[in-house]
Design a protein around this nucleic acid. Structure first.
Length: 225
DNA sequence: GCGACAG
DNA sequence: ATCTTGTCGC
């Protein structure tokens, strides 16, 4: 799949995003997929970025954890709309440290619900040619078709300014803030939501992502107590 | 020019 | 994302 391109400026990054977005495939079902990698990262200013890939089996649960660490100096800055250029390199390292390749990716961030149609989940999916889904804790782009009901399991579509469906706002549990689900690559809109709905979810985040989040925080603290 | 703005 | 204790609510 080649190296992960690191653009020298935002104009170049933007052009790359528009180009890669044309390669996104918005169809496919994840039925039958059991082994997924959940991706999350944590960091503190002046410290390395710690990325975690959790290999999770839908029936066996947590299998193992892969780490990816990138020094602050090597990091692309965080700019809304360009998150993948900052975090994806660390995720790719983390994925290399897994004993076996996942069948799909669950990523903390947007899929196609992005100004140029290439959130970090889509970017990673296209780069690795793997099915991927974006699960974000807040909305970056688009608007909700209607207010999201308070009931657990409710979902309303995320629409682009032109009215195109980009994903779903999804209430995973009662009394929690919604998650924003959008297909990353090689999965349809409905299928992406259906897949997330079937993941074990004890709290707000689906269990695989929650574990990845906990592991990332743990790893960051162990860097230098 | 005025807001909005994943992690 | 992280800095942070107790506290309100299901």
């Amino acid at each position: 799949m080649g190296p992960f391109p690191e653009p020298k400026d935002l104009q170049t990054a933007m052009a790359l995003q528009r180009s890669l977005a044309e390669r996104v495939v918005l169809e496919g079902s994840l039925e039958g997929v059991r082994r997924i990698a959940a991706l999350d990262a944590s960091h503190r200013r002046g410290k390395p970025l710690v990325a975690v890939a959790v290999l999770y089996h839908l029936e066996k649960g947590l299998l193992c954890v892969g780490l990816g660490v990138v020094p602050e100096e090597a990091l692309f800055p965080y700019i809304p709309g360009f998150l993948s250029f900052r975090e994806a390199p660390a995720y790719l390292e983390a994925l290399k440290n897994l004993p076996e390749p996942p069948e799909a990716l669950l990523v903390d961030g947007q899929g196609i619900a992005h100004p140029r149609g290439l959130g970090i989940a889509s970017h990673l999916g296209v780069h690795l040619d793997l099915p991927s889904i974006g699960v974000a804790k807040s909305l970056l782009y688009g608007r909700l078709e209607a207010p999201l009901p308070l009931e657990a399991g409710s979902a309303v579509r995320i629409l682009s300014p032109e009215g195109r469906p980009l994903g779903y706002a999804y209430r995973s549990r009662k009394g929690v803030k919604p998650l924003f689900i959008s297909p990353g690559h090689r999965v349809g809109l409905e299928e992406a939501l259906a897949f997330v709905k079937h993941l074990p979810t004890r709290f707000r985040l689906p269990e695989p992502l929650r574990l990845a989040h906990l592991e990332a925080g743990k790893a960051l603290r162990q860097l230098d107590p």
